[in-house]
């Protein structure tokens, strides 16, 4: 069953581009990653799906219901985690969770308690006093406490420490196993690679690729920068090589063992191994630079 289906969904803010002719399908039980650089249109897509903004043209269905006509019915079974979690001044965490549940006309006290314990969230504190990460936890509980069938998560892990990120993804996987569909928007590629089954890449308002993630994660591409003198000539899997005085930087998708071997036989003053940024990923997988596919 298709939980989310958009067809030719387009949104312009005046003349500014939001998303263009977006076709996206997320099936039930999927953990779907939505990747793209900032400003690519991820949030616009999500906000349109949730009825915060109206599409300029095209249409979208959630649970087979039209997003502009049956918004209430859709939202009652959706949990949304905004990228920037802000709440009303002067309210305690407990008040916020209660307000959210009341607005849904449900009682989620036991589920909320469970989630707060797992995320180590103190419900007696005022939301104004909370750090960014702790406010995020409040938003997570708000999104999960009514046990929705669809979770829409916009940059969910920003601000969470690694332990909390792990706990959060554990919860997501548990929910996913119970049949909950999850749309996870992120600009952190590794997060999507580790957790999602399908992913779509959005760029300049258009979907440029949509596929299973295991295809993407078979090769773990890294951006390597070496200061010193090393011989890289016999290595395979090197792309986008940039030489500078005393250093070399390249994208590497080959065997790690042979790379380490090559490095150890040379002279290395400094070495950095980074996740490639998305632009580099596009270059690697889609090979055509800025062109859309």
């Amino acid at each position: 069953m298709e939980v989310i289906k958009t067809s030719k969904l387009t949104k312009y803010y005046g003349k500014a581009r939001g998303i263009i002719d977006l076709d996206l399908t997320v099936t039930q039980g999927d953990l779907f990653g939505f990747i793209g650089p900032n400003g690519a249109g991820k949030s616009t897509t999500i906000r349109t799906l949730l009825g915060l903004i109206r599409p300029t043209s095209g249409s979208a269905m959630v649970f087979g219901k039209d997003i502009t006509k049956e918004k209430g019915a859709i939202l009652s079974d959706v949990g949304y985690l905004p990228s920037e979690a802000l709440f009303y001044h002067g309210m305690t965490v407990k008040d916020i969770l209660k307000l959210s549940a009341d607005l849904r006309r449900t009682n989620c006290t036991s589920e909320a308690k469970l989630l707060c314990e797992r995320l180590q969230l103190d419900t007696s504190r005022k939301v104004d006093e909370l750090s960014f990460g702790n406010r995020k936890k409040v938003a997570i509980v708000c999104a999960l406490q009514h046990r929705p069938a669809l979770l829409v998560l916009d940059e969910p892990t920003s601000g969470l420490d690694p332990l909390m990120q792990k706990e959060f993804f554990d919860i997501l996987r548990e929910r996913n196993r119970e049949g909950v569909t999850i749309l996870l928007s992120s600009h952190v590629l590794s997060e999507v690679q580790r957790n999602c089954t399908h992913a779509a890449i959005i760029r300049d308002g258009r979907i440029i690729a949509c596929d299973r993630v295991d295809g993407l994660s078979k090769t773990s591409i890294k951006r390597i920068t070496v200061h010193g003198v090393v011989d890289l000539e016999h290595l395979t899997g090197i792309r986008d090589r940039k030489e500078a005085e005393g250093s070399v930087s390249f994208l590497y998708s080959g065997d790690m063992g042979s790379l380490l071997h090559a490095l150890s036989s040379g002279r290395v003053d400094d070495l950095t191994v980074m996740e490639p940024d998305l632009e580099e990923m596009f270059l690697h997988y889609y090979g055509k630079g800025g062109e859309t596919i």
């Binding site: 949730l50 009825g51 915060l52 918004k71 209430g72 019915a73 859709i74 939202l75 009652s76 959706v78 949304y80 905004p82 920037e84 802000l86 709440f87 009303y88 001044h89 959210s100 607005l103 849904r104 938003a139 708000c142």
Partner: peptide
């Protein structure tokens, strides 16, 4: 203004 609209309007309240 206080960016609470996202919270409020994503609840099933018309």
């Amino acid at each position: 203004k206080d960016k609470t609209a996202e919270f409020l309007l994503t609840h099933p309240v018309s």
